[in-house]
């Protein structure tokens, strides 16, 4: 399958890298997505396969916030077929800015993916007290970032 991305050009996507989001993202339609790695650093792009212009940067929240906690409802985990934490991968949407100090991460609406079934969704974290615009580099400096292992298949490495 070919992804014709306005940002990244043409990318050949293997069938087993396609992620299904039955309900799209919050406020964003589109059932089919792929994860692209932004070089070998901590950032990824969740790219729509239905819209060549739609891609959101994201990262593994624990890379930046070691104590971050996520709880999604039983109904939401059931939607993804999650029965145990084993195959759960979590990403949070990153808002970039001109200055690294102004980068932020949305810890309220994590993206949860069943890494084997490759089914995902964006849910409201039932653990309160987190910010939609938490400064990304509030605990970790960029040079000290240790990218976490990612269990979700990546369609391509870009940038």
């Amino acid at each position: 399958m070919q992804l014709e991305s306005t940002r990244f050009g043409n990318i050949e996507v293997r069938e087993d890298a396609v992620l299904t989001f039955p309900d799209g993202l919050i406020g964003m339609a589109g059932e089919h997505w792929v994860l692209l790695a932004h070089d070998d650093g901590p950032f990824y792009w969740l790219h729509s396969l239905d819209d060549p212009d739609l891609a959101l940067p994201m990262t593994n929240p624990w890379t930046f916030f070691i104590d971050y906690e996520v709880k999604v409802s039983d109904e939401d985990t059931a939607k993804l077929g999650i029965e145990s934490p084993e195959h759960v991968a979590v990403f949070c949407v990153v808002r970039a800015s001109d200055s690294l100090a102004d980068f932020s991460i949305n810890l309220v609406g994590p993206i949860v993916i069943h890494s084997e079934k490759r089914i995902g969704g964006q849910f409201i974290n039932e653990i309160g007290g987190y910010n939609v615009r938490q400064p990304l580099f509030s605990e970790v400096e960029l040079p000290d970032v240790q990218p976490a292992t990612n269990a979700v298949p990546v369609a391509a490495v870009v940038a």
């Binding site: 964003m28 891609a55 959101l56 949305n106 609406g109 964006q122 940038a159």
Partner: peptide, 16 residues
């Protein structure tokens, strides 16, 4: 959350 998604979707490669 919707607004953060929209803002994030405006990111270009060179912004990261």
């Amino acid at each position: 959350v919707k607004e953060e998604n929209r803002a994030a979707a405006r990111t270009n490669i060179k912004d990261l």
